[in-house]
């Protein structure tokens, strides 16, 4: 039923700065099917945003994809020229960013910005594009789009701007929408609106979505598959159910344990992950999470673990899952929330 849309193989991205090579992404492989929503979860510095920028071909100097393939609809993106990438960006792959204020150009009307995207990629005249733009604004739930199309970004509120961004992104019916922390800058009630909108549009337009976020709740809401990143590597990948109900990597478990649950009466102590993320100028030679892991073994500091496949779609990079590893009692932090 599902057709492969995107395949990323062993991608490595580095930034060549004055302090040295920052290895932001150190060999990441994942794939995405048509109509699927994949969540990439990680903290700042985990490489999740760099991964998406690499796929979009939006890396700025001094960043560079130094290894690996990005295959989109059977075509290798890393070999494409800037010009070819420009034809793909916005048309076949679109992106929405965290900050809806800075990702819209303040000197053009919202309508102009949508029309520009449509005219550039779809070879229609301005009049037709304007009709489409108004249509698009209506689709993303902006009230009275005929009037709002001529507004400037500053006349929109934060939530409306993010809707407008989504309208621009989806105006050319892309096959893939990359949403990089689309709701982080928004309030909870607005976040709920936007997430609802993304889910709705994904189903309606059969667009694949890569949702990049640090918020496990957002991922649980929108995504069917989840990739957990840490220190420039994928720690664990699986379906949402596998990740949330059967996490196998201590980092995933740690994340679950460090957020408070809503359904307990008594104050419960949170279990934080001690320490801080690794410095990617000098990435650790073993598992990047080893210095903060409660189950660290000697091997973890020496050698990076290979992926262990718990099921065909659930893999995890942890030495504890190795067949020779000693049996260790692990608190996996899974909770079933009781919600009325």
């Amino acid at each position: 039923m599902s057709e492969r849309l995107l395949e990323v193989n062993n991608m490595k991205t580095s930034f060549y700065t004055h302090v040295g090579e920052v290895q932001a992404v150190r060999g990441v492989s994942f794939n995405l099917n048509k109509g699927e929503a994949l969540g990439i979860v990680g903290e700042s510095g985990s490489g999740k945003s760099v991964t998406s920028m690499s796929v979009m071909g939006l890396l700025q100097y001094p960043g560079k994809v130094k290894d690996g393939n990005i295959i989109f609809k059977g075509e290798e993106l890393t070999k494409k020229s800037q010009k070819e990438m420009m034809a793909i960006r916005g048309n076949e792959i679109a992106m929405i960013f965290q900050d809806p204020m800075t990702s819209l150009n303040p000197v053009y009307t919202i309508g102009n910005q949508i029309i520009e995207a449509i005219v550039r990629h779809q070879h229609v005249d301005k009049k037709e594009a304007r009709v489409k733009a108004i249509d698009m604004l209506r689709t993303v739930g902006i009230p009275s789009p005929e009037k709002r199309v001529d507004n400037y970004p500053h006349e929109f509120s934060g939530g409306m701007r993010q809707r407008a961004m989504i309208a621009i992104a989806l105006s050319c019916q892309p096959d893939l929408l990359i949403a990089d922390e689309p709701t982080t800058a928004l309030d909870v009630t607005i976040q709920a609106q936007i997430l609802e909108l993304i889910k709705e549009l994904k189903d309606k337009m059969n667009t694949s979505v890569i949702l990049i976020t640090h918020d496990l709740g957002v991922v649980a809401d929108v995504c069917s598959r989840v990739v957990v990143m840490y220190g420039g590597l994928i720690m664990e990948e699986g379906t949402a159910e596998q990740i949330f109900y059967d996490p196998s990597h201590p980092y995933t478990m740690g994340l679950m344990k460090s957020i408070p649950r809503m359904d307990t009466k008594e104050k419960q102590r949170l279990i934080p992950i001690p320490g801080t993320p690794p410095d990617l100028v000098k990435p650790p030679k073993g598992c990047p999470f080893a210095p903060r892991c409660p189950y660290t073994m000697k091997i973890c500091l020496e050698q990076a673990p290979e992926y262990t496949y718990l099921t065909p779609e659930h893999r995890s990079a942890c030495w504890l899952l190795h067949e020779n590893a000693p049996k260790t009692e692990v608190d996996n932090g899974v909770r079933k929330e009781v919600i009325k």
Partner: peptide
């Protein structure tokens, strides 16, 4: 290659002795 991992490599390391707040730069 996996079988070559010697048994002592599986020993647990007490990471709490490691100073997690150390600043390298």
């Amino acid at each position: 290659a996996d079988n070559k991992i010697s048994t002592d490599m599986w020993e647990k390391v007490d990471m709490s002795t490691l100073d997690k707040e150390v600043i390298a730069r």
